[in-house]
Write a protein that binds this DNA or RNA. Structure first.
Lengths: 346, 346
DNA sequence: TTGAAAGCGCTAACAC
DNA sequence: GTGTTAGCGCTTTCAA
């Protein structure tokens, strides 16, 4: 690797002159600058960032800690962040936790060792105490999920309201028993969505008995499949279900297709998020659209301002983006039980 | 930030002793090691990788340069790589090019400055000459696309055969005019797929006149929409279409749903890749499944071995994974033109 | 078993 | 306008 010293020797200059020329310092003559730049280009000089960092320069690298990049929520986030960061000369390190706190810890150790300038994290349910400690030493923002031990900078969506809306829509249509397949209550998002679901039930004067709840790993398509099978096989199967994560929605949709369940006549469904295939699934999936893109951009811009300006504004910050119900064909009032209609179809 | 010197001062030791204790050097007594480790943990010491790198240590960071992480091919790749690298203590820097060679160049400059240990790249159609130069200085592998100027280490899929299979299937069913929507021929993948398409046409004794070809940005869902609209509006609309990228497939499927085109009676369709929604689209999408996961894992493992062992094996390496046709309901023999059958449906 | 000192590549304070 | 020098945090001789 070519160093400033190599250039200096070739040009019979001192390293500091070369360094200054490369930094476009006022004190260096245009002619010298030109010669230096020329030589640098010819020799293929690339500045060594490690050396710069040792002189106190910031790393220009931001860590993105998420459960799984295959989840479209997270790939959307990664894309938005990457785009915005590149524009300002930042780089993004991708760290996947698979929702495992020990993996999360290992990643945070690595990021700390790399002296990343900042971290954007979707924390696991209960981050390790060392993770908490590590994050104290680096500017960071939480995304989607919010764990109080990790500080009060957070960008997320209104999970409570998302599921309240989804469920209220089903309640309004007169469904007597409504199922819910969502993430675990240990996750802040899981807890909020579940609360939203329950709130809509009681808001519709339905007892909690009317809700059949299946909780499990939010990133598991397979769990979505199994959960919906259990729900439909139960003694008092629901006439409608609300979903509490993108991956679970994917699993549920696949399984309903496979089982050839008639939607919405036999079962109404409200999904979570809005993926490409959702609009063409069966009669079109009614779902909760979330402004993930805007949220991610906001988060990225916020962190970069935090990193590039004096951190005088390290106060609490929370941004809650609202979701909105997208009505398509997968929801309808329940069929009248034990009183088959004369007409076939609508 | 705590340094080895801080620990040394507190324990009344020299920095070198502390360094050796932390590195578990044989010459240090167990007792001293214990005291040092204790203090390090208490004080929250995290080794400074920049300093290590200046002493010649490798960076343990690999750059992943791809067009767009939202494309599920690439998010799958990123996930597989991330998982495998984490297991061996490597980190992944995510660089999105948006298929723009200048953005690609900027990313490669940054990666070089960071002295990444290696690079995995899905190159743009014509990488900048400086990009080529930069890559010469760092171990790298090409993924999916292969540009000869970037060396001969490559992991990809058999693009030619993928489209040959897809098209041959349509030819066998007797389609007289077959459309193709794919990426530009400037891209190595685009060129191969197009060749595969043409090869199947001539293999079926169809003249090239029988092919209606629409090329455009391979990552643009919107282009897929427009292309299929143009294809169907043409004077001699095809009775079947083969698709040449995941994103284009998504666009085409959406548009066909929107236009309410009857598949496969009015039009047969073969997709590219196998996304979650493909199985439940219309009658189920017949498509080409590609072993992206295996390819990515192979690539990651290969690069890491290259990085962790002596580079005595820097010879050419190419791995070509085959795709396979997944038959679902979206393809059928063409309807007899101008001779409507008496029977309705099948 | 431990310490002192040099040096990785760069920048900045201090000469001249 | 340019050179000299010190030092960032760490590893690694070379001494003791």
């Amino acid at each position: 690797m070519i160093t400033t010293r190599d250039i200096a020797e070739r040009l019979q200059l001192s390293v500091s002159t070369v360094g200054r020329a490369l930094a476009d310092d006022d004190r260096i003559s245009e002619q010298t600058k030109f010669r230096v730049r020329q030589a640098a280009a010819e020799m293929g000089y690339v500045a060594n960032r490690a050396a710069r960092m040792m002189r106190g320069a910031s790393s220009d690298v931001v860590g993105l800690v998420i459960p799984d990049i295959r989840n479209s929520f997270y790939s959307t986030i990664a894309h938005e962040l990457s785009k915005n960061m590149e524009a300002q000369g930042f780089q993004l390190i991708l760290s996947e936790t698979d929702d495992d706190r020990m993996v999360e810890l290992r990643h945070l150790r690595e990021l700390s060792a790399s002296r990343v300038a900042g971290v954007i994290i979707v924390p696991t349910a209960r981050p390790h105490s060392e993770s908490v400690k590590l994050l104290k030493a680096v500017p960071h923002v939480q995304l989607l999920r919010k764990h109080s031990s990790l500080g009060s900078q957070w960008f997320g969506v209104n999970d409570f309201d998302a599921l309240r809306q989804a469920t209220a829509h089903l309640v309004e249509q007169g469904h007597p028993r409504i199922g819910y397949v969502g993430g675990p209550a240990e996750l802040p998002t899981g807890a909020e969505r579940l609360k939203g679901f329950r709130s809509a039930l009681s808001g519709g004067n339905l007892s909690s008995e009317a809700g059949c709840i299946e909780l499990g790993p939010p990133s598991s398509v397979e769990h979505g499949r199994q959960a919906v099978r259990r729900l439909l096989a139960g003694p008092s199967a629901p006439t409608a279900i609300a979903l509490g994560s993108v991956q679970l929605t994917l699993g549920v949709l696949e399984e309903l297709s496979r089982l050839d369940v008639k939607v919405p006549s036999e079962l109404s469904v409200v999904g979570f998020g809005d993926e490409p295939g959702f609009s063409w699934w069966g009669p079109g999936l009614t779902t909760i659209g979330l402004p993930i893109q805007e949220m991610a951009t906001g988060c990225g811009l916020w962190l970069m301002r935090r990193l590039t300006t004096k951190p005088d504004d390290d106060s609490a910050y929370a941004s809650v983006s609202p979701g909105s119900l997208i009505l398509r064909g997968s929801t309808a009032p329940p069929a009248q039980p034990r009183r088959p209609s004369r007409r076939k179809g609508s």
